[in-house]
Amino acid sequence: MDDRRTGGQPEPWRCGGLRWAPEGPGWSWWQPGAPGGGGSPGGGARQGGRLVLGERVALAVPQGAERRCAGVWRAGRRLPCPQGELIAPEARREQCAGCAALDRTQSVAADTVPDDPRPYTVYLAWFAPGLTKIGITAAERGPRRLLEQGAVCFTRLGEGPLMSARRAESVLGAALGIPDRVHAPRKRAGRLRLPPREERLRELRAVHTAAHRVPGWRDTLRPAPCAPVDHAALFGLEPRPPRPTAEVTSLPPGCAIRGVLLAAAGGDLYLATGQGELLLDSRLAAGWPLIRPDPADSADPAGPAGRLPPTTAPPPSAPPPESLF
C-alpha cells in the first residue's frame, strides 16, 4: 500500500517518468503516502532533474528496491494504486493493469470523455520521410504533446470542439492515407537518417496543403495556416543523429547507468557511455525509487560501481520510406 513506511520514515520519492516542457525534458517524481492524497503541489508530486544535452546523466536502482504502480492522475492529483501493485522491471508503463484501465475511463484517446469543453488542436506530426501522422491535443497544452511523442517537426491544421477535432482527424487520416499513431520502433529508425530541415518541412507543407483540399472537415473548425515547428535541434538529432549500439531492456535492482546525454526525443534518451552509445526508454525508469550512483561511495546501495542493465542490439536499420507527397 502507498502508506507504507520504512523504519518510521516516509517512503522515498519514486520516478514518475520523463516530462517535457518547451525548454526541454526533465524527470518527474511522486511520493507514496504524501499528504493530500499524494498529489498536493510540492508534496506528493514534483518536477525536477532537468536533462540538458551534453551533460552527464547518472541513475541507479537500489539493491532490493521494488517498482510500484504510480496509480492514477486526476486534475493534477495522484490517486494511489489501491493494492500498491508491483511492476515488472521490463514493463514500459508505470501502472498496473487495473489503474491503466481506470485511466482509460477518462481518456480522450479512448473516446471516453466526449463532453470535454476545452478547445482541441488538430495537428500533423512528421517523424521521417513518408512517416507523418495526424492527431489531436488540447489547445492549452501547446506543443507539449508533440514533444512527448518525439515529433521531429509538426504543424497545426485547425482548432475547435473535441468531437469536431476527432471527426477531422478521422476524415483526414482516411483521405490522406496517414495514421493516427506511429509506434516507437519506426520513430527510432527514422531518427537515424533524417533528411535536411528544408526537405522535412517541404513534405510537411505538402501534407498540410493536401489536407486543406479535403472538403467538409473545416465546417466546425478554425483552420490554421501552415507554420511548421522543427524539433531536431532541441532533441539533439542535429548535426549528428544518435547511433545507439545497444538498447536497455529493463532496469533491475542493483543496476546503474552513467553517460553523457547526446539526444532526447519523446521518451527516449541517447547516452554516450564507456560501452558505446546507449538507448534508454525512460518509461523503464518510472515507478523506481531511483538514486544517483556514486562510484566513490562504497555504501551506495547499488554497489561501488553498479552493474550495467541488460541490453539488446538495436534492430537493423531499414531504408527510409518514400515521401508522401
Rank of each mutant, 00 (worst) to 15 (best):
D116L: 06
K133F: 01
L124P: 03
H183Q: 15
E94I: 00
G160M: 11
G142D: 08
L162W: 02
A97G: 11
A91W: 02
L162V: 10
K133C: 03
A174L: 15
R145G: 07
R92G: 08
L162F: 09
D116R: 03
A184K: 14
L102W: 00
A97K: 04
G135M: 04
E94K: 00
R186H: 03
A128Y: 00
T155R: 03
E159S: 10
G190Q: 06
G135Y: 02
A97V: 12
T155L: 07
R92Q: 11
E148P: 07
Q106N: 05
S107G: 11
D116H: 08
D116N: 13
E90Q: 15
L124K: 07
G158L: 06
A110L: 12
R104C: 00
H183R: 15
P80I: 10
L147W: 05
T137I: 11
G150P: 04
P129L: 14
E85K: 10
V108A: 01
S164K: 01
L131M: 15
L86K: 09
E159D: 07
P119L: 03
R156P: 12
P161H: 06
A174E: 12
E148H: 09
C99D: 00
R93L: 01
V152S: 05
A88R: 08
C99L: 03
R186F: 02
T112P: 07
T112N: 08
R145A: 11
A151L: 11
V113H: 13
R141Y: 10
A168M: 05
A139E: 14
Y120M: 15
S164C: 10
L162I: 08
S107P: 07
R166K: 14
L162G: 04
P82A: 13
Q83Y: 04
P179Q: 07
Q95H: 08
I178V: 15
L102H: 01
P143I: 04
G158F: 02
A189Q: 14
G190E: 08
A175L: 14
G160W: 02
A175F: 05
R118Q: 11
P143F: 01
L86A: 12
P114M: 09
K187H: 12
S107W: 01
A168F: 01
Q83T: 11
L86E: 10
R92N: 06
G98C: 06
I178G: 06
G130Y: 05
R166Q: 09
T112W: 05
L102Q: 04
A174M: 14
G190R: 03
A109W: 00
V108H: 00
A139H: 13
